[in-house]
């Protein structure tokens, strides 16, 4: 691999791994100098850009989370009860998420994470409890939610019209959001997209129109590692923009950076930490 290409890729990967722009610049400059002095091949001297960027990010310890005052309540779920037949799936679950907060809903398979999210979105009924939403909702399911025979840009136009966005603007917004997930939507119908790409479409549609509350049900199915990191970048960015984000996830390593954790597997009656 030519050094310039490797260095450009390194720059990208450093950004993805949350390394600040100043430090990233230094790291790239130092690597460039080393390659010049040693005359070695980049892959031999440093390895793959992603791996080296990961090592740097590890050494640096990740971006520092700035203390942020929590905004007004955007989602308040109180004592949600859901039964399937006689089996209680959720027995009195509560969660409050404010503007500028990220909440993670965790739990074992079958603990009712998806059901809880759907209840919050109003897509499923609850047998007890209530949900208050201050603002608009965007919902991203684990799979599905797209029209097989429509192209990506047609999806943007359709969802955008619902939110009251003019078509040109909706197409631009969709393309912009897709780029943040390392995806350039093409002219194919969505049934021809790979599973991971379809999920990117799903995620872009959920966030289209800048809803105040984002409910994401493990939306990263089929994402490669790089896109998975991009996804969390978008989550932090939405948080910084003042949205309330709820992510159903079972991957724990991002948990130390979320504001609220709802663990549904502890007991059937869970409460937000």
């Amino acid at each position: 691999m030519r050094p310039e290409i490797w260095l450009a890729a390194l720059s990208d990967e450093l950004r993805r791994h949350g390394v600040g722009p100043d430090l990233a610049g230094h790291v790239v400059a130092e690597a460039a100098a080393h390659l010049r002095d040693s005359g070695e091949q980049p892959l031999r001297a440093f390895g793959a850009p992603a791996a080296y960027a990961a090592a740097v990010a590890d050494s640096v310890g990740g971006p520092v989370a700035a203390a942020r005052p929590a905004g007004p309540v955007r989602l308040r779920a109180v004592d949600i009860v859901k039964r399937y037949g006689r089996r209680p799936v959720l027995a009195g679950v509560s969660l409050t998420v404010r503007a500028g907060q990220v909440a993670a809903v965790v739990g074992a398979n079958g603990s009712g994470k998806s059901t809880f999210l759907r209840i919050c979105a109003g897509l499923a009924g609850a047998d007890g409890g209530r949900v208050e939403v201050h603002g608009t909702i965007g919902y991203c399911p684990q799979a599905g939610g797209t029209a097989d025979f429509l192209r990506a840009d047609e999806h943007f136009a359709l969802i955008g019209a619902g939110r009251g966005i003019r078509r040109g603007e909706a197409l631009r917004a969709g393309a912009h959001a897709a780029a943040a997930l390392d995806w350039r939507p093409g002219p194919q119908q969505s049934r021809h997209l790979s599973g991971g790409t379809r999920q990117k479409l799903n995620l872009v549609l959920a966030a289209l129109g800048d809803p105040d509350v984002l409910l994401l049900d493990e939306p990263y199915q089929g994402f490669d590692r790089g896109t998975y990191l991009d996804f969390w970048h978008e989550v932090w960015r939405w948080r910084d923009e003042g949205r309330a984000v709820v992510v159903v996830t079972h991957l724990l390593n991002q948990l130390d950076r979320v504001d609220v954790v709802l663990d549904l597997s502890a007991s059937t009656a869970g409460a937000a930490a």
Binding site: V27, A45, D58
Partner: peptide, 15 residues
């Protein structure tokens, strides 16, 4: 010693 090994160590020492 490969660069990929050395520079993260230097970063940690700096940190």
């Amino acid at each position: 010693i490969q660069g990929g090994t050395l520079y993260p160590v230097l970063l940690r020492l700096q940190r």
